[in-house]
Structures are given as structure tokens and as C-alpha cells.
Computed example of a mutant assay.
Amino acid sequence: MQILRAVAFAVAALLAAIGIAHAQDATTLKKEMVGQWELSTTERSKTCVVTMKGDAAAQGFKLELEPACKSALPFTKDIVAWNIKGLDIVRLQDASGESVIDFTEVEAGIFEGLRQGEGVYILQDLAAARSMAKSMDQMIGDWAMVRSNGQPICGLTLTNTEADQDNFQVFLKPKCDAAIAQFNPTQWRLERGQIILMSKSGEVWQFEADDNAQWRRVPDTADPLILLRQ
């Protein structure tokens, strides 16, 4: 009987500790979310500034949406408050406390949320988002694909012309290497620090910036493919 009591006591203590840890996680996340955030489509063609506050509101905490939000992202017209649900869900909610969109953190300071029938939306720190926008603007223009020996094998132009909701148009120049011409990318985007090139068939090539201010295709190979700004 004493053993059973000891086990029960240990289980209760463990559950209490887990509950405290969960409460601390939610409290920490709440503190981290107070401030200005950018709510946007994945490629940032439509954006909205959300200011999350720590003041209590009905069903959650107060927030402010910039006036342009309702035209840029119509679903935001229903958002009146925000809250933390569970351990790691940031909820933008309506007046009844129901979710308009739920976000989970996918990397430090970047949250993703899905609205059925619409697609994925991004919530990220406003300053970081504007820094990324500046980076994306710097991507627009002419590039060359080269091999590790520096030999150019193709030229391409990244544009800021929308191809669809998430991507922009890219154009190959004449006389490209056969492998590049076969891939024939038609769309691109900047996503989580990578240049993403996509073909009509759905094939995807990813490039990451290296320490030499150039972009290497990943995963790396013995004869890497490199993007250089012209």
C-alpha cells in the first residue's frame, strides 16, 4: 500500500511539474509575441502590420491592425484579438474567441498558418520582414549560373513580376547548358534564406548563400552549380 501511495505521489509530482513547464512555455511565448509583426502571403505580395499588445481583451489580448489590412488580406476583418493556445499556437481570433488563423513557429521568429482554401500565411517580426524585403529587392536582375571552375553555363533574369500567389517570373537567356535548358525554370521566390527556382513540371532547385557572397545549389556536389549576380 505504501508503494502504491509513493508511486501515486511521484506521478502527481511529475504531472504538476509538466503543468508548470507548460505554463512557463506559454507565458514565455506570450511575452515574445508582444510587439509589431508582419502578416503576409508567403511571397510577401500582400502584407499587413499587426501590433500585438499584452493588455487583456475579451477572450484574449488586444491587438491593432493597420487600416490597409482589410483590403490586402480580407480575412483580417474578423480579427479582434490574439491568444496563446496550448504550448505553441499563436491564435488570431474573432470576437467569440474562435480561430481566424492559427500560427506555429517554424523557425526563430517566423510562424506559419494555414487557411483552408486560401493557402499558407506567414507571421514574422516586422523589422526582420522588412529586412527580408530589402534582400528580395536586391535579388531582382540578371544572374549567371557557373560551375566551380567559374565557367558560365547560363544567364537568367529574376523579376518582381508575379507568376502566381507565391512566386515571381524568371527568364532564361539563350544558349544555356543543356541541363539548365531542360530544367527551364519559370518561377522563383526567396524563402527562408534560399533562392528557389521552379520549372513548369514542378522540379525545384534550391540555392543558399555561402561565405563568398555567392549562391550554391544545395545539396552540394563535387561539381557545384553557383549563381552569381551580374
Rank of each mutant, 00 (worst) to 15 (best):
D177F: 06
L227M: 07
I226G: 06
W143Q: 04
Q124E: 14
G60T: 05
A57R: 15
G117V: 08
A209R: 15
E203F: 01
Q206L: 00
Q124F: 00
M132T: 15
G109K: 11
A95I: 02
L65G: 05
A23S: 08
L73D: 12
L39T: 09
T47Y: 03
G54T: 10
A23K: 12
K53F: 12
P174W: 06
E208A: 15
S71M: 08
V49L: 15
T159W: 03
W188C: 02
M33Y: 07
I226R: 09
W143D: 05
V218M: 14
E112P: 04
W37A: 06
V100D: 12
D55I: 03
D142Y: 12
V80T: 15
T221C: 03
P219C: 12
P219M: 10
I122K: 14
I226K: 01
G35T: 05
L228D: 00
I84W: 01
A95W: 01
G141A: 13
P224G: 02
A57Q: 15
V90E: 00
L14M: 02
D125K: 09
G19E: 05
T161H: 09
G202A: 01
Q165H: 05
A133N: 11
E66N: 11
L190I: 10
A56L: 08
N83E: 13
V218D: 02
M1W: 13
N167M: 08
G86P: 07
W215R: 00
G119N: 01
W188I: 06
E191L: 03
D142R: 15
V34C: 04
V120F: 04
D211L: 10
E32Q: 11
F171N: 10
T104L: 12
K85A: 15
G35Y: 13
M139E: 07
N212T: 09
V120A: 04
R147K: 14
V218A: 12
T104H: 14
T51A: 15
K53T: 03
I180L: 02
K70M: 01
T157N: 14
I153Y: 07
N160W: 02
G109H: 10
E43T: 05
V50W: 05
M136W: 14
L15Y: 09
F111H: 06
R229H: 15
T161C: 05
C69V: 02
I140Y: 09
M52I: 09
E191G: 00
A144T: 09
W215L: 00
G155Y: 14
T221A: 09
G86Y: 13
G86C: 08
A179M: 14
I153H: 11
R189E: 04
G113D: 09
V204L: 05
L156Q: 10
P219V: 13
S135R: 05
W143F: 08
Q138E: 11
V90C: 09
S148M: 03
A56T: 11
A16N: 06
S199N: 05
M52A: 11
